[in-house]
Amino acid sequence: MRDSRRASSDMSAWCSAVVLLSLILLLSVRENNASDSLRGSQFSEKPCEEIYVVGEGETLHTIGDKCGDPFIVERNPHIHDPDDVFPGLVLRIAPFYFSRKVKHI
């Protein structure tokens, strides 16, 4: 009877260890997937190439928002009228990112 209890106790310990190890492994995989998706979004921060061709229905404002460049007119001296944007117009894009600087006191 004593051996039976010990065997039952050992089996219970092994099952608990397997369940715990499975949970750790599952959480680790989920964390890696989450960090991979964050890493992917870092690389996609610049959705536009340096040379951009205006598409149908786009404005300088929508292109600036999409590409992260609020200074499109300044970078493209061939644009004389910001309202005269048409499909096929070629623009130079340079994404502009605001950096957060923390001041230490």
Rank of each mutant, 00 (worst) to 15 (best):
R2I: 12
D65V: 12
D69H: 00
S99A: 03
G68K: 01
V54S: 01
N33L: 10
D83P: 06
M11D: 15
A94G: 07
E45Y: 07
N32D: 11
D36Q: 10
D83E: 15
M11E: 15
M1D: 15
R5P: 06
P87E: 11
D69L: 00
L20Y: 15
S28V: 09
I24C: 08
L26N: 14
A34W: 15
V73P: 01
E50F: 05
S4C: 06
H104V: 14
C15I: 06
N32Q: 11
L27V: 11
T62Y: 05
C15L: 02
I63H: 00
V29T: 15
A94N: 12
M1V: 13
L26A: 10
V19Q: 14
R75Q: 10
R6D: 09
L91I: 07
P70R: 03
R100T: 07
L60P: 00
R6A: 04
R75I: 03
Y97S: 05
F98D: 15
M11A: 11
Y97M: 07
P82H: 00
V73Y: 02
A94T: 15
G57A: 04
E49R: 04
D83N: 13
S22H: 05
L23H: 13
F96D: 14
V19F: 08
H80F: 12
V73F: 03
P95A: 08
Y97W: 12
G55P: 06
E31R: 09
L20C: 06
I79D: 05
P82L: 00
